[in-house]
Nucleic acid binder design. Structure first.
Lengths: 346, 346
DNA sequence: CTGAAAGCGCTAACAA
DNA sequence: TTGTTAGCGCTTTCAG
């Protein structure tokens, strides 16, 4: 933090305003907050003083007094990618309209960092927390402060806790995507994922497995580590098979990105010899050649629901029973799955 | 804001800690902040009490007392796109390491919203502001609070003010890009931009004009409004010409995106019949067919410099002379400009 | 309707 | 070394 004490630039305070307007401190406060009775005339005088001094209320002092900071914490892994950006935008909007500040913090999906950030937020008295949790987190949700802070998670639930969450029907839509590929006649459908411990990924894996099983097909599912070009290596392994897969299903944005890049590098076209569907859209996805078929998540809706729900919890007089919302996604058929190309955009 | 008063869940305070440890309030405070003398033994007792109560310092109260909020405001148009995401990530990192919170707010490049957000931030006593300003802003930088709050702008300067800013050599690199196209033998090089009042855009336009003029070529520069598919319409106009352009230079991320999409829709390949260079990279740009040649901005570096500079200003005992940093970009030659394809990534 | 006074939880003198 | 005290700037009773 700042080493040197900031020069004591005293900004005008309510006391100054009151003095200038020739009224008491309390009256000035009431006039500005609109709470309690103040005569037209006095109010006008006070507002004139405010104008003249360029007074702005010190929200810190106010928060201390009223015991509400008017801030909420938004804890997310990162802001790359259209999905999270969409969520953040929607969340920010809802809270701003409700008069709250959003303190955004990044965890990099690291449990340790997440714990730090949560600690940080509660120390700053946030009125609520919106979190897209790191997989495996959970232990650090048990501080006394956290117990008194409304929380809703989105994108994935907080493990082993029954907090509110806004989720997606991951399993269902993963299955739908794979079924679609099967419908195109594919028998060898590979599935690429990352982050095995991630709840959404697990759900999507299940969807894939179920679809394959139902169709009596052999699953080819691999979870890789993107750090050491695991996606590319896995793809090469599959391609080296005597009978390589004819379709690929990627479980999230990052693997989709890697796969598309890798396919492009190797000159492998879609949908033949390799049909493709990704869970999550990527930027330009609808404009690639061929356009990418994808399960697209309603990012804005997810963010909005989560924010709305958190507001409910904050305003609730007592603890509400926790709720889990499951939202729908959309399987958007473009060209990469083998469907006739139609440039349906978002 | 919250309508109902939050149930008065009194969290443990320093008083509780002090009492439990059997010491005075001041001693407890000193022990926890590490300032001033406290005996080993008492300190241990105090820490035990902290542990036992699950005490967390109320940063709001602390801020009020020490007159530093430990928060900085980050004001940006939006978080789409790799460029801003990269900046934000770097900024966040620097401030977190220095012990500051980042309050991120979005302006949508709207002057009005920007003014609101700035007001919001100063009311919350932020120790400094980092801003990628909306074009045309400037008036609302003149409140007494703003005058006492260190500011550094990045990506573009604050108009008509001499605040610190971290900028890019926009003109230079725009010119380099166009020169490169000229080097490939192009005579009719179109240039597509948006947001005519945006400083960076203006600089880049100048770069384009200079390059064309030097080469004795006729500029074909159009600034469009993306809202009503202006980019597509403009492209169609150019294509309808008796001698249509053979190369296209886009002035930013959004126009690049639009142009790439439009070109794809119309089945126009790069680099022939249309060579292409974009100012700003886009996601997947290096993996398109052909990979996109682009001027890429060092987003991380820009963010880091800006954050670093703001920290300097905050820690400075008095007003520092304002400084303007001009950073270099990189013209990355991939395939779309006509160069032999090399898959140099970032 | 208005003013005075009591704190929110913390830090920073100042005495002890 | 430690405890006591006086506020930071604001809201909120509670009498006037």
């Amino acid at each position: 933090m700042a080493s040197r004490p900031k020069p004591t630039n005293s900004m005008p305070t309510l006391v100054h305003v009151a003095k200038l307007a020739g009224v008491g401190l309390g009256t000035a406060s009431r006039a500005l907050s609109g709470q309690g009775y103040v005569s037209e005339e006095t109010a006008a005088r006070i507002h004139r003083a405010v104008e003249q001094l360029g007074y702005q209320r010190n929200e810190l002092a106010r928060s201390l007094k009223v015991k509400r900071s008017g801030a909420i914490g938004l804890v997310i892994p990162d802001v790359g990618g259209p999905f999270m950006a969409g969520c953040v935008r929607a969340i920010q909007k809802v809270f701003r309209q409700a008069g709250y500040t959003c303190i955004i913090t990044f965890t990099d999906s690291d449990e340790k960092i997440e714990a730090q950030e949560l600690d940080y937020l509660t120390r700053h008295q946030v009125d609520g927390i919106l979190i897209s949790p790191a997989p495996g987190s959970g232990a650090h949700f048990r501080t006394p402060q956290m117990a008194h802070t409304p929380i809703v998670s989105f994108d994935l639930p907080i493990e082993k806790q029954d907090y509110d969450s806004i989720l997606l029907k991951n399993r269902h839509y993963a299955r739908a995507a794979v079924d679609h590929l099967i419908g195109h006649g594919h028998k060898r459908i590979a599935c690429l994922g990352m982050n095995r411990h991630h709840y959404s990924i697990q759900q999507r894996m299940e969807g894939y497995r179920t679809a394959m099983k139902q169709a009596g097909l052999q699953p080819m599912l691999e979870i890789v580590d993107l750090a050491d070009s695991g996606a590319r290596r896995q793809l090469d392994k599959w391609l080296a098979l005597k009978s390589p897969p004819t379709a690929l299903f990627c479980l999230n944005e990052l693997t989709t990105l890697e796969a598309v890049e890798a396919l492009a590098e190797r000159g492998i076209r879609m949908p033949s010899p390799m049909a493709f569907i990704g869970f999550d859209d990527i930027q330009l996805g609808p404009y690639l050649d061929p356009p990418l078929t994808a399960v697209v998540q309603p990012a804005g809706q997810i963010g909005e629901c989560a924010a709305q729900r958190l507001l409910e919890l904050i305003d609730a007089p007592e603890k509400l029973p926790s709720k889990r919302l499951m939202l729908d996604a959309a399987l958007i058929l473009r060209g990469s799955c083998g469907c006739p190309i139609s440039r349906v955009t978002y």
